Simulated assay, not measured.
Amino acid sequence: MVVAPYKIPRSVLVVIYTPDLQVLLLRRALGDGLGAAFWQSVTGSLDAEDEPWAAAAVREVQEETGIDATAPGCRLHDWELENTYPIYPQWLHRYAPGVCMNTERVFGLEVASYTHVTLNPREHTAFAWHAWREAADRCYAPSNAEAILHLPAFVAA
């Protein structure tokens, strides 16, 4: 696997939730231009052009929360939803010249209640579990809020 010199404009969004639909939200670290108001699910770009979506989801969950998405009791599910949206201007410098759109693949990860979370302090400063509707209301990014609002339908499927 060859790591790209620029961020790849394909990313994963992983909604982590418990059987009773409590959703894990992470507060981004300061220094990204958005600060403490930016609550989100796990997100991250593919590390290489040939990295499978699911592998990126597992890697990002581990990096950001310390949760092993392949562990017994965890159930990662590709929701087969993709969002395409403009990259925030403050992050355009991370991408190749001329790249201004990102495609995001959405996953759900069911975990046991009281799953231990260990944050990566470079990325996040706090976490909280919220009922799914409240979690959607707290998300900064519209695609993240929309994904959480789909959660009950994907759990029932």
Rank of each mutant, 00 (worst) to 15 (best):
M1I: 06
V2M: 11
V3Y: 11
K7V: 02
I8A: 04
I8W: 04
I8T: 04
P9S: 08
R10L: 07
V12E: 14
Y17K: 00
L21H: 12
Q22S: 12
V23H: 02
L24P: 04
R27E: 14
R27C: 10
R27K: 12
R27G: 00
R28C: 09
R28Y: 05
G31M: 09
D32A: 05
D32V: 06
L34K: 13
L34G: 09
A37W: 05
F38W: 12
F38E: 10
F38L: 10
W39G: 01
W39Y: 13
Q40A: 09
Q40S: 14
S41H: 11
S41P: 14
S41V: 14
V42T: 09
V42Q: 06
V42M: 04
T43Y: 06
T43M: 11
T43C: 11
S45V: 03
L46D: 04
L46E: 04
E49K: 04
E51K: 03
A54S: 09
A55L: 10
A56T: 14
A56L: 02
E60G: 02
V61D: 02
Q62T: 04
Q62I: 00
E63S: 08
E64C: 01
E64D: 13
T65N: 03
G66W: 12
I67D: 01
D68G: 04
A69L: 07
A71N: 07
A71D: 06
G73A: 07
G73K: 09
C74R: 15
C74Y: 06
L76Y: 05
H77L: 10
D78C: 07
D78A: 12
E80M: 10
E80D: 10
L81D: 05
N83Y: 15
N83H: 12
T84C: 11
I87A: 06
I87K: 06
I87Y: 09
Q90P: 03
W91Y: 15
Y95D: 08
P97M: 02
P97L: 02
G98Y: 10
G98I: 09
C100F: 08
M101I: 01
R105F: 02
R105P: 00
R105Q: 14
F107S: 08
F107Y: 15
F107Q: 08
L109D: 08
L109M: 09
L109E: 10
E110L: 12
V111L: 01
Y114W: 04
Y114I: 00
T115W: 00
H116G: 01
H116S: 11
H116F: 01
T118E: 12
T118M: 08
T118N: 07
N120S: 09
P121R: 02
R122V: 03
E123K: 13
H124M: 02
T125D: 06
T125S: 06
A126P: 04
F127R: 00
F127M: 03
A128Q: 13
W129C: 00
W129F: 12
H130G: 00
A131G: 07
W132G: 00
E134V: 10
E134G: 00
R138P: 02
R138Q: 15
R138G: 01
C139A: 05
Y140C: 05
Y140I: 01
Y140Q: 11
A141Y: 14
P142V: 08
S143N: 14
N144C: 12
A145G: 15
E146M: 07
E146S: 13
E146N: 08
I148K: 03
F154H: 14
V155T: 12
V155K: 13
A156Y: 01
A156I: 02
